[in-house]
C-alpha cells in the first residue's frame, strides 16, 4: 500500500539531496519530480506530525539542509499528501507559480519582526460628545450610542498612531529588504507584525538598522527572529489559505492528508516563538 508523503520543500529537479537525509519517522528523504521541479518528501508511517517544538525543528532542519544544495522553496509545516502520485499532481497543478516562486525566493531569507507597545490611552472625556454629567442626564439609548462613539474614536486614534509608528519603523528597515508583509495591530498590544524578505548579503545591514531602531524607541519592545527560509513570501494557493490578517494558524489534521495545493505561508518563526516560550 502506498504511504502518505510528508513534503518539506520544492527544489529544482537537478538539485541533489544531502546523503543520508532523514525526515519524520526516521524515513529517508527523496524527491518526486515533475518537469523542472522536484518535491523533497519522505513517507509517513504514523500519521502527520503534531506541531511540537521538536517536530517544527525537524521540519526546519530538513528545509535548511536542502537550501545549500540549490534554490529551495519551503513548504508549510504539516503538509501531507496521499502518495507520491499526489505530490506530482500538486507540482503539476501549480507548476508555473511554484517555478516562479522558486526563482524569486529560492536563495532569499526571511526575518520576522514583532513590536509591542503600551496602547496609548485617549481620555474618553475628550472624545465623547455630551460626556460626564451631561451624559448621565441622557436616556439609555443616547448614552449607549455616545459611549460607542467614544470607543470608536479611541480606536481610530490608536490606529492612526500605530500607522505612523509602523511607517517610521518600516522606513528604516525596508530599504534593506526586497519585499515585506506588514500587519498593523493584530492585537491591541502588538502594534506591528511584519516579515521582511532579504538577500542574504543584506542581513548585517538589516540587523544594524534594527539595533538602531531599538535604541531610538526605548518605549517599545522589539523581537526580531531569523534568518528563516522565506515561508511568508510563498504565493498562497487560491482560496486555500487564510488571509494575512487571519488570527488562526492552520494545522494539518493528524491523520488526513492536507489539500494538495497546500504549499506554505504560515510563519515558522511565530510557531517557534510560541513553542520556545512553552519550553522556557
Amino acid at each position: 500500500m502506498a504511504s502518505a508523503r510528508y513534503v518539506y520543500a520544492i527544489l529544482g529537479c537537478e538539485t541533489s539531496l544531502p546523503p543520508g537525509l532523514r525526515g519524520f519517522d526516521d524515513a529517508v528523504v527523496s524527491v518526486v519530480r515533475w518537469r523542472a521541479l522536484a518535491a523533497a518528501t519522505s513517507p509517513l508511517e504514523r500519521g502527520a506530525p503534531r506541531p511540537t517544538a521538536e517536530n517544527l525543528w525537524r521540519h526546519e532542519a530538513i528545509v535548511e539542509a536542502l537550501r545549500p544544495q540549490g534554490p529551495a522553496l519551503p513548504v508549510r509545516f504539516g503538509t501531507v499528501l496521499a502518495d507520491a502520485s499526489a505530490v506530482a499532481d500538486a507540482l503539476a497543478e501549480r507548476y508555473d507559480v511554484l517555478a516562479a516562486d522558486l526563482a524569486r525566493l529560492g536563495d532569499k531569507v526571511e526575518f520576522g519582526l514583532n513590536v509591542l507597545w503600551d496602547p496609548p490611552i485617549t481620555p474618553g472625556e475628550d472624545l465623547a460628545p455630551g460626556s460626564g454629567a451631561a451624559l448621565e442626564a441622557q436616556g439609555l439609548g443616547a448614552r449607549y450610542l455616545r459611549t460607542q462613539l467614544a470607543a470608536y474614536r479611541r480606536e481610530a486614534a490608536m490606529r492612526e498612531r500605530a500607522g505612523a509608528l509602523a511607517r517610521e519603523l518600516d522606513g528604516e528597515l525596508s530599504v534593506h529588504a526586497l519585499e515585506r508583509r506588514c500587519t498593523l495591530l493584530p492585537t491591541p498590544r502588538l502594534v506591528v507584525r511584519a516579515a521582511y524578505l532579504l538577500e542574504p548579503g543584506r542581513v548585517p545591514a538589516f540587523q544594524d538598522a534594527f539595533a538602531q531602531l531599538r535604541r531610538a524607541h526605548p518605549d517599545l519592545r522589539f523581537l526580531l527572529s531569523g534568518p528563516w527560509p522565506p515561508y511568508s513570501f510563498v504565493t498562497p494557493p487560491e482560496g486555500g489559505e487564510r488571509s494575512a490578517n487571519s488570527r488562526q494558524q492552520h494545522e494539518a489534521s493528524p491523520h488526513q492528508p492536507t489539500d494538495r495545493s497546500n504549499v506554505g505561508t504560515s510563519s515558522m518563526s511565530e510557531h517557534i516563538v510560541k513553542k520556545r516560550e512553552q519550553l522556557s
Binding site: 514583532n114 502588538l190 540587523q207 519592545r221 523581537l223 527572529s225 516563538v273
Partner: peptide, 20 residues
C-alpha cells in the same frame, strides 16, 4: 536567531497566540 527584548518573550508569545 532571536534578538531584541528577550525578557518580554512571554508577552510576545501571548500576543501571537490566537485568542481562542
Amino acid at each position: 536567531r532571536l534578538s531584541g527584548d528577550l525578557a518580554a518573550l512571554s508577552e510576545f508569545a501571548h500576543e501571537l497566540t490566537p485568542r481562542g
